[in-house]
Design a binder for these strands. Structure first.
Lengths: 343, 343
DNA sequence: GAAAAAAGTTTCCCCGCGTAAAAAATATTC
DNA sequence: GAATATTTTTTACGCGGGGAAACTTTTTTC
């Protein structure tokens, strides 16, 4: 079947009896060459299985079919899930997606953007690190490469932003918790890596005040992305010291809540809204595993599909209009309350 | 600060008053040029912040500093964690790591290898899909590109394999469970995507027989990578029908166990090894969240660090010896029993 | 300060391919 | 079968940079 190795398009063209530019045309669009020629190429193709070097191709194209996707931390299942969705949609739309994770480090985010620039992508979907981002570098990048920000906004940077409305997240959870029991205290990291956290804390305070209630914020120590551990440690301390001002805890995000639930379980505190339960715990994000916690976690979920959809739609529109939008668009999706047993 | 844009090395060389080959040399190793020249280049560098196009660079190098990493499913936290480790180590060793996820699809695995080939990597770390892999394509790829397989072996393919010893996993868990209580039944998917599962089932049977016991295997339906859901559904059915032959359940992997624990909790069955517990549940992999399940999951863990270490070491050695090893090496690490409260 | 060594410059060709323009070959039309 | 339209081939250049060879300049050595 496969005979000898083909090094490049020149060789392949010679072997298939067609000129190189025609072969090039074929790989750009097989329908664009006459069918007798196509047959010759395809005959050679399954005899020698040659494939053009995509980076050499892209180097010279007017517009590549590359799309870059950058997320701040791929080991976080929420981002893993979003990235997988985005990648799938880009591929379906005929693009070649390249995924980068900043792994929580500014240097890696910068490096990712640098490699992306070399790729000459048609467009980029970027979820910045946030607090840790090098704003200038990102702004310069966005000035060169058509970019849609998602998840976390950097005001004025990029052609569009798509994300979830953190205000809506917290309004829903707070409203629900107040309506069905004691008002919640808010459980979060003192120095969150995630800037969305700050928006959520503010929204919590606003929501409580809107109900004529005093905000109660519990801030726990810890750095980095080991959120479950941080949540666990903080919860253990709070529970041991009986420092909770109420029986209802609203965590800034699900990963903290997973740690909180583990601590509650260890302390023998039953979590849930039924009688005999000592605590109610709710959170935000609808982490892929939140449905499988014990008890299943009541949370306010991202509309992943909507954000992904709108993100890629915005990107495709951006690409079609030549990379620049008349004015920056910002799309915020309201969140969806997911009632489970924990609150 | 940043004045006008530099398009290529030629322009940058002109502007910095140095010849292009010297600039090229500088970017390959800043120490390789005289310090007066280096100063000129660096002066221009922070004035115009030019960076060479990495793909153009790699196109022509003898040996690139690229390393490819391919994992079967990045939304699985276990692989996300491994990938992050590998990436970090490669970067520390001065390589540029590029990460691909096959997302559980053969077509994407093939595509990843194709793009990798175009990258001309010095070496590749590949965790194949397994059952779903296109063996021929992978074999052909490995014949061209120095490759170390990890996690899942494809016998005879690639220059080396590094992974965990599934036999050791299961031997440890079975031995422990038998020693401390009832012998375990084995809970797994009927048609696992993951070929390691098959090795684990066999090891379970062998271990039980080694103790003079009859293997008890529970196979649940379900396809794909939503393992927690599959574990949950299967556990619900088994628990409702009281189909468990013993009070001790050994799950093929932690993700199934997470679903199992959720089902147990919902059924009001207390899991653990203490009195008053109805079930013991253990599993394999030491998933990042297993420490935070309720109760925390007793599991047999990968030595992530050892596998990562050995994987990159094998790769670096492979790269240094010019891409081929005299004979294929296979490294299996024994697993580490992680005792928690679930069993 | 002259000779030797080291580093930089010029000049060319290479990687693997896109693309444009002009010339040649095929297909289509009547 | 001639005229026209459509494809393909030829030729040539570009992308952004690696690398070798021959030559010139700078630095080091004694």
């Amino acid at each position: 079947m496969k005979e000898r190795k083909i090094r490049n398009m020149e060789e392949f063209a010679a072997i298939s009896g067609v000129s190189r530019p025609t072969v090039s045309k074929y790989f750009n669009d097989p329908e664009s060459v006459r069918k007798t020629v196509r047959a010759r190429i395809e005959a050679a193709l399954d005899k020698y299985d040659y494939r053009p070097n995509i980076f050499a191709m892209d180097q010279n194209r007017r517009r590549t079919k590359n799309v870059g996707i950058v997320v701040p931390y791929l080991a976080d299942p929420v981002f893993a899930e979003i990235a997988r969705n985005l990648e799938r949609r880009c591929i379906e739309a005929g693009f070649r997606a390249t995924l980068f994770s900043s792994h929580g480090e500014q240097a890696l985010e910068v490096e990712a953007l640098d490699r992306l620039r070399s790729l000459r992508p048609a467009g980029v979907l970027l979820a910045p690190l946030g607090r840790l981002s090098d704003r200038d570098t990102i702004a310069r990048f966005c000035a060169e490469v058509p970019t849609v920000l998602f998840d976390r906004d950097i005001p004025g940077v990029g052609e569009a932003f798509v994300g979830s409305d953190n205000m809506s997240f917290v309004l829903q959870s707070v409203e629900y918790l107040i309506r069905t029991g004691e008002p919640p205290c808010f459980f979060e990291m003192k120095n969150p890596s995630n800037p969305n956290s700050i928006a959520r804390r503010r929204s919590y305070a606003a929501a409580m005040e809107g109900h004529g209630l005093e905000p109660m914020v519990i801030q726990v120590d810890g750095e980095g992305w080991g959120l479950e551990q941080i949540g666990y440690d903080g919860a253990m301390r709070a529970l041991e010291q009986r420092a909770l001002p109420t029986d209802t805890v609203l965590c800034s995000n699900d990963r903290l809540a997973i740690g909180f639930l583990a601590a509650s379980y260890e302390m023998g505190l039953r979590v849930g809204r039924g009688s005999g339960c000592a605590l109610r715990v709710a959170a935000h994000d609808d982490h892929p595993l939140s449905r499988f916690t014990c008890p299943p976690l009541t949370t306010v979920g991202h509309e992943y599909d909507l954000v992904s959809n709108q993100g890629v739609e915005a990107l495709f529109e951006l690409i079609e209009t030549g990379g620049r939008l008349e004015r920056r668009t910002e799309t915020l999706f309201p969140a969806r309350l997911v009632l489970r047993e924990s609150a």
